[in-house]
Every structure is written in C-alpha cells, then in structure tokens.
C-alpha cells in the first residue's frame, strides 16, 4: 500500500514524533526516551513516517538522525487551502442568492 502524509498524521504517537522532530533532529535513542513504549514500537512508527516522507534518515558518523521534512507537511496546508477555497466560493454564491431571496 502506498503511504501518504495523511497516514503519517492519523496516529497520535506519530503526530507527537513529528512535533518533536520539528524542533530538531534526533537519534533513535533520544526519540524513544520520550515515549512510554518499546523501542520497537517507536521504530515502527518511524518506518511509517519515513515511508510517507514526513521524516528522513541521515547518517552523521556512526549515528543515525531522524529529520523532519517540512515540505511534506505543506501538502496538508495546500489540501486544506483548496478545501477552504471551495467552500468560500460556494458560500459567496450563497450570499448572492440570499440577497435576492
């Protein structure tokens, strides 16, 4: 199954991970310390996030760092923006219709 950004944010733990990584890149160990769950559970969330490209992995020496990918999150903003425009358009028309009613 293809992954997308909506799957990334569908889960509260993944949203929390994104929130932490948005502040700064983290190693798997540092990240896992923030959660009351097994390292394995955290890393499976990370896997979804990397498949969605919301998070990318970078090696720095021997350490792996998780980085937040802000451009992926802009997809969400754009989506919501289009949705907003659709309804603004629709409701502006309704304004006009109501004037003549």
């Amino acid at each position: 199954m293809r992954r997308d950004i909506f799957q990334a944010i569908a889960d509260p733990t993944r949203r929390a991970i994104l929130g932490l990584l948005a502040v700064g890149a983290m190693t798997p160990n540092a990240l896992a310390e923030h959660f009351q769950m097994t390292r394995q559970a955290v890393s499976s969330h990370i896997q979804v996030l990397t498949e969605c490209e919301a998070v990318r992995l970078e090696k720095n020496g021997r350490e792996i760092y998780y980085h937040f990918n802000p451009s992926k999150m802009q997809e969400l903003d754009l989506w919501l923006e289009r949705f907003r425009k659709l309804f603004e358009d629709r409701f502006d028309k309704l304004d006009t219709v109501l004037k003549d009613l």
């Binding site: 944010i9 509260p12 919501l80 309804f87 603004e88």
Partner: peptide, 29 residues
Amino acid sequence: MNIVTDPSQKTLHITRDFKAPVEKVWKAW
C-alpha cells in the same frame, strides 16, 4: 468563514455567518 480540522484530519468543521434569517438559508439549502 472558519475552517478547522481535527488532528487526524478526518473531520472538517466549517462555520460561516450569513446575512439572512435562518428560514431563508434553510430554503436556499
């Protein structure tokens, strides 16, 4: 117009005021 989503983006809430009594908006809908 105000538009908000729940954190998982499964639900959208849109609110909007109209300069017409509720009877008219109901009819238009």
